[in-house]
Design a binder for these strands. Sequence first.
DNA 1: AACCAGGAGAGAG
DNA 2: CTCTCTCATGGT
Length: 223
Amino acid sequence: MPQLSRKQLLSLYSKLRSHFGFLNWWPAKSNDEMAIGAILTQNTSWKNVEKAIARLEANRMLSLKAIAEAKLSKVERAIRSSGFFRQKAKRLKSFSTYIVSNYGGIDSFFKRSKEPRKELLSIGGIGKETADSMLLYAGNRPIFVIDAYTRRVLSRVFGIDAERMGYEEVQRIFDVLPASIDLYKDFHAQFVELAKNYCRKKPLCSKCPVRSMCKYASKAAST
DNA sequence: AACCAGGAGAGAG
DNA sequence: CTCTCTCATGGT
């Protein structure tokens, strides 16, 4: 019993896509860099993550192998700009150590793991959103990533109480879509772009690219 | 100058 | 299972 039809979702995507254009999200040079970025961006703006990635690269630690071998304090220093640096340094190390020692590298992890999602979640510091981001953007699995922005847009545009729903429950809304990796990647990016620019605390409904199909916008206009 | 950012986990109920 | 609190920094 899906709450939204494929047509509704694709119509939303179409509007976003023609407004924002194709968003080449997460253009990491390697899957290592992508996975590292996924951990660093937890509850942190991407801008500060870029600085941390640049510093890791400058110190030749922009790979799981290098992080697994580096001292914790050295990782901490490099990623300080991304906030939560002590936690994240531990998370980077435990993740890197797990992948490198069990699979040799992230590419063979994605190739050989039978249940990659469950396995990622078993590693400390990797929650559902981070795991799904890695699976979609690095592992090329058709898994829809749910974040706070996605929930907010679903809530406002369609009136779905996605902010109180469980993660997988929100994820199931997108089961009606064709299992296209490129669609999932770009759709998620479009959600973020819409939420950051329009669905804010102080919403900009009058200029919103999807106001014609948005419940919140029409409600805000009539009152 | 409060307030949030592309969350996760431990603890409590 | 769901709710609450903590983690810690830079930008607006």
